[in-house]
Computed example of a mutant assay.
Amino acid sequence: MAFNFDESIDRRHSDSYKWRKYDGRDVIPLWVADTDFRSPPAIIEALRARVEHGVFGYGAPPGELATLFVERMRSRYQWRVKPEWLVFLPGLVSGLNLAVRALTREDMGVVIPTPIYPPFRSAARGAARQQRLAPMALTQGRWQVDLAAIEESMDGTEQLLMLCNPHNPGGTVYRREELEQQLAFARRHNLLVCSDEIHCDLLLEPGARHIPFGSMSEDAEQRSITLMSPSKTFNIAGLGASLAVIPNARLRMKFIAQRSGIVPNVDVLAYVAATAAWRDGQPWLDEQLHYLRGNRDWLAARINALPGLRMALPEATYLAWIDAGRLGVENAQRFFEQAGVGLSAGADFGDPRFIRLNFGCPRALLEQAVARMERAIRELG
Rank of each mutant, 00 (worst) to 15 (best):
V370Y: 07
M216T: 13
V370W: 07
Q78P: 05
F37I: 01
R101K: 15
V93C: 07
F349W: 11
I44A: 12
P135L: 04
R363H: 14
A312W: 03
S16F: 01
L285C: 01
S229Q: 04
A137G: 08
I377V: 15
T275K: 03
M162R: 10
I198H: 04
A364W: 07
A244Y: 04
R129W: 07
A257M: 09
E7P: 05
M162Y: 09
Y117A: 10
A301G: 13
G171H: 09
P283G: 04
G109M: 06
M373Y: 05
G207K: 08
G308Q: 01
G207T: 01
R12P: 08
V173D: 09
L191H: 06
G381L: 11
L357G: 03
A320Q: 00
I112W: 10
A49V: 07
M162P: 09
L327A: 08
Y77E: 10
V27L: 07
R142C: 13
I322K: 04
E106M: 12
A49S: 11
R187Q: 15
E71K: 10
T157A: 15
S344A: 12
E379F: 10
A345E: 10
R293L: 02
G360D: 02
K254G: 13
V263T: 07
N358K: 03
F335Y: 08
L47K: 06
L203S: 01
A148Q: 14
R20N: 15
Q222H: 11
S16R: 06
D201Q: 11
D201Y: 03
A102K: 00
G294Y: 02
L192D: 02
L365W: 12
R80E: 14
E177L: 04
D201F: 01
R334M: 12
L251F: 14
V27K: 04
G141C: 08
G214R: 06
I198T: 12
D201G: 01
A277N: 05
L292S: 01
A124G: 09
R175G: 10
D155E: 15
I236S: 07
L343I: 12
N265H: 13
D34W: 06
G342P: 05
T104A: 15
Y58T: 11
Q131M: 15
P61Q: 09
V32L: 12
G57T: 08
E330L: 12
L47D: 05
D36R: 01
K82V: 10
M216K: 03
E71A: 11
H290F: 00
L191Y: 06
E337D: 03
W321V: 02
G325F: 00
P61C: 09
V111C: 13
P212D: 10
L98R: 10
L138K: 12
R223L: 15
L30E: 06
L68V: 08
L299C: 14
P62Y: 05
P62A: 05
A127P: 02
L160C: 10
S39H: 05
A128F: 13
T67C: 01
G346H: 01
S94L: 15
P119F: 03
